[in-house]
């Protein structure tokens, strides 16, 4: 049984068909990249997995459990984290608080224990300290210590991307969806991002699905690639094979 299995997924918005009969199997521990020209439906796949869109047809099973029909927060608590194409951070909060929100599903403090957060021994204070330590390790891993207590509003774009990645990691997901992790970064930052994505897979034992436009990055780190065009799956396979696939070449370069 596949770790994540998308079967016969179709979705349309009004008259516009965004995905047509897409089936993708994702094995555990892989880095799988979804590529395709603009409007191919890459982000739509993410939005279907995370419950933001409800597909018209098809099923998505994650570790044997159906995801279609679940609310985004339910999907998140099953261990699926994501980042967004146009960074969605809590912009008035500090980096620390943003990452602590990633710990939300692992924490228990409710309105009553929260309001009586008085001494070092109160349950809320103990839990808070424990989770701050975990977040601190992620801050160290991503080398964003200098941004720790700064509101993300005041951070440069590249750092915000990292904070968003850190926030997803703080959720300790088993499946991580990265929507254009290297968009808007310079060559050096892209290379760093590539190493981080590999390290995340190896150190955190996370399966990663990534939407990405930078082909060098995609070819370097992906174990498998899925190519989409106009909501149709063109190919799935190892980077070399997909790169040579005539249909993929046609989608990107046009007919010879």
């Amino acid at each position: 049984m596949a770790f994540l299995s998308i079967q016969d997924l179709s979705i349309s918005f009004g008259g516009l068909t965004a995905l047509t009969h897409i089936s993708i199997d994702v094995r555990q521990g892989l880095i799988l990249s979804i590529i395709g020209p603009n409007g191919a439906g890459k982000t739509t796949v993410f939005n279907c997995i995370t419950g933001i869109y409800r597909p018209n047809q098809g099923s998505i099973t994650f570790q044997g459990k159906e995801l279609v029909g679940k609310k985004p927060y339910q999907v998140a608590s099953m261990g699926i984290a994501r980042t967004f194409q146009n960074i969605e951070l809590f912009s008035h909060m500090t980096t620390m608080d943003n990452l602590l929100l990633g710990r939300h599903i692992h924490m228990k403090t409710n309105v009553f224990t929260g309001a009586t957060f008085l001494t070092r021994r109160s349950p809320a204070a103990r839990e808070e300290r424990e989770h701050r330590e975990r977040v601190e390790r992620i801050i160290e891993f991503l080398e964003i210590e200098s941004a720790r207590d700064i509101p993300v509003l005041a951070l440069p774009y590249g750092t915000r991307k990292l904070v968003e990645l850190g926030r997803a990691l703080a959720m300790e997901p088993t499946l991580l969806l990265l929507d254009e992790p290297s968009a808007g970064m310079n060559q050096e930052e892209k290379r760093d991002m590539m190493f981080w994505i590999r390290d995340i897979r190896d150190d955190f034992k996370v399966t990663i699905i990534m939407v990405e436009h930078d082909m060098n990055l995609v070819m370097d780190i992906s174990d498998e690639i899925v190519a989409l065009n106009f909501g149709v799956k063109l190919a799935q396979g190892a980077p070399n094979a997909v790169q040579k696939n005539p249909e993929v070449l046609e989608a990107y370069l046009g007919q010879q």
């Binding site: 995370t50 933001i52 609310k71 985004p72 927060y73 998140a76 608590s77 984290a81 994501r82 967004f84 969605e88 951070l89 809590f90 912009s91 008035h92 909060m93 608080d97 602590l100 929100l101 990633g102 939300h104 599903i105 926030r167 959720m171």
Partner: peptide
């Protein structure tokens, strides 16, 4: 924190499991 998260971005708040 969950309250502020909802204020700043509902989409991201839900993605955090709120």
């Amino acid at each position: 924190r969950a309250f502020v998260a909802i204020r700043d971005s509902e989409v991201a708040a839900e993605a955090m499991g709120i």
